[in-house]
Nucleic acid binder design. Structure first.
Lengths: 335, 335
DNA sequence: CCTAGGTACTTCAGCGATGTCAATAGTGGA
DNA sequence: TCCACTATTGACATCGCTGAAGTACCTAGG
């Protein structure tokens, strides 16, 4: 029960292996009669192209690695799904790789772990501290996260989104806005989301208060947001809003506030980031920044295909927008 | 800038390509001195094994296709992540394929779409109506869903889980248990979960009432559970519990009940299935059947590896257990 | 009738890696 | 000193496929 080869098909159809190859590749230099005979033989013996053989000749694999920190987090799951579906029509299959943490992520992008793919789409979790000493061996496009000058980046509207959401809170009369972030403990806040938040504060003449900054453990799990918010409540800080770094953290924070007897949004407004499906069903439903994933994925795929085709311009940055999705958790009136 | 080959490494190390190959494969018939020299040369030229070449010789690809209906649904996302991580230590990389709906799913399992992998792990969405006329061309293990006699199946504790949860509801004094299912409209309920539910009803002498069966659209999205529950409420049926076919549906149902002014669990107990992370953070937190995913994934991977190794016994069925995770949504006392 | 040019197909080499088997070097014993 | 044996290493063929180049046949134009 050996897997049939081109030669086997050719023997059945009465032509050479090369002619069968030409038919499989859709070449025109094959007569219609031969083509039909070959296709019949292909069906008869159940032939399937062996991509190893083809790849050996072409030097291409037809595969793209998508590197995400995890996939149980709705944000990355949705991203991964969109990427898989966007790559498919271009003839690429997707190797999904789970890698999180600086070293593992960089290895997944730069190391031997992703050999045998034509390119990499990298969705970072932490800001990678890559000093540029290692060059990627194949085209890399980074999707989200803090941009680096080492490869192409699609930068989501982090700054604009955080700024707009903070402005929304300020305009609703909130003044003491807590930040529930996901940096490792001891870390300083940073990144474009943080900068966007600061910009809005400055624009409204509100002073920044570091006592209102709290970070969960290094996972952006719901439980981490819960812990972080519990910590903030215990610290005795007073605040009337919580800008959470993403929806998962916000969901955890919502629960902590509820447990603590605080009403959302009357006592504290809560907002998230990513606009995951889940936010529509929380109690109260969650205001969030929607990052236009579709647009991001489109850009990432287009840039990667350019690179694979041999485009050699220096690394680019594409910036996408962000939209506010306002729901009950940040309105003054309860839903 | 051609990609270096075994011969290139050999030229640097002063040995033949074959010896380099032996080093890469970890063969013992290489002296320690040669081994070190080769490894140094590998690092120097940045050599990476070309899997196309290796695959051509070995006839293996080192890849497994994981077919899921979607990945934005936490149940499948968690499953996919576990599978990827479980396959990695065995030297396999995962091609994640998104396929939903009977035809697309079967094609993804049987058709040419998954050629060039060593095996397939298939997580079905609908019960596949496969008549067995098409034989899979490579080892297939089905993970979850209704078992078929056509390939190996890991059957989660659907019957046991649904029975236990229904029993729990009955023992808490609930008598009119609505079923919020995910079959297409017009479909009859079915499957082991349904049977498990019926068994528990029978055991308690409670009669089944088809007016309490409601199905969302064919997606197990949260929104679908919302719609389904709205429909049930509009129908005027009276019920004191809702056994939802999965957590996503349950989350939607919770929202619909809340909107309608019904209290959970005081007026209506709500339960889900899958025990996704999200259920811990809903309001109220969600009772759910936990399917022991870890165990399922373990079995699936083990069975697939057996098959790939050439195990030719007839298709097997492995049944895994299920655990009740009881939270506020099905307790009589509010949390 | 001959030839140029096209069509349809075949033959051949080679992509990179590894299995087979032969060759070589080194070791210990007679 | 020579031989048998083991431990390493190398030469070659091969996996399935496709690009390049070649062959056979046919048609049209002279």
């Amino acid at each position: 029960m050996r897997r049939p080869t081109l030669a086997d098909v050719g023997a059945v159809a009465g032509v050479s292996a090369k002619t069968v190859s030409n038919v499989m590749l859709g070449r025109r230099e094959v007569s219609e009669a031969t083509r039909l005979a070959v296709l019949a033989a292909v069906a008869e013996v159940g032939y399937e192209v062996n991509l190893a053989g083809r790849g050996l000749v072409s030097g291409q694999t037809g595969r793209i690695a998508v590197v995400v920190p995890n996939v149980y987090q709705p944000y990355f799951a949705e991203l991964a799904e969109r990427l898989i579906l966007a790559l498919e029509p271009h003839g690429y299959t997707t190797m999904l790789r789970i890698a999180n943490g600086g070293a593992a992520e960089l290895d997944a992008v730069l190391g031997a772990a992703v050999s045998n793919v034509d390119g990499v789409i990298y969705c970072p979790h932490f800001r990678p501290d890559h000093d540029g000493s290692l060059q990627p061996r194949r085209p890399v496009v980074q999707l989200g996260g803090a941009p680096t000058p080492h490869w192409d980046c699609v930068v989501m509207g982090e700054f604009a989104g955080a700024e707009a959401m903070t402005r929304h809170l300020l305009e609703s009369g909130r003044r003491r806005i807590a930040l529930v972030w996901n940096s490792s403990p001891g870390d300083k806040p940073g990144g474009d989301r943080f900068e966007g938040h600061l910009a809005a504060l400055r624009a409204h003449g509100v002073e920044r208060d570091d006592a209102l900054f709290v970070a969960g453990s290094d996972w952006d799990r719901r439980a981490s947001g819960y812990e972080a918010m519990v910590g903030l409540l215990r610290s005795g800080a007073s605040f009337d809003a919580a800008l959470c770094v993403n929806d998962a953290i916000a969901v955890g924070a919502l629960r902590a506030l509820r447990r603590h007897g605080l009403r959302v949004p009357q006592d504290v407004a809560v907002t998230g980031f990513d606009n995951t499906d889940e936010g529509e069903f929380t109690v109260p439903s969650l205001s969030s920044v929607s990052p236009r994933q579709e647009e991001m994925v489109e850009h990432a795929v287009a840039m990667l295909l350019d690179r694979i085709a041999g485009d050699a311009v220096p690394p680019r940055e594409v910036h996408t927008g962000a939209d506010l999705v306002l729901r009950a958790s940040s309105r003054l009136q309860p839903s």
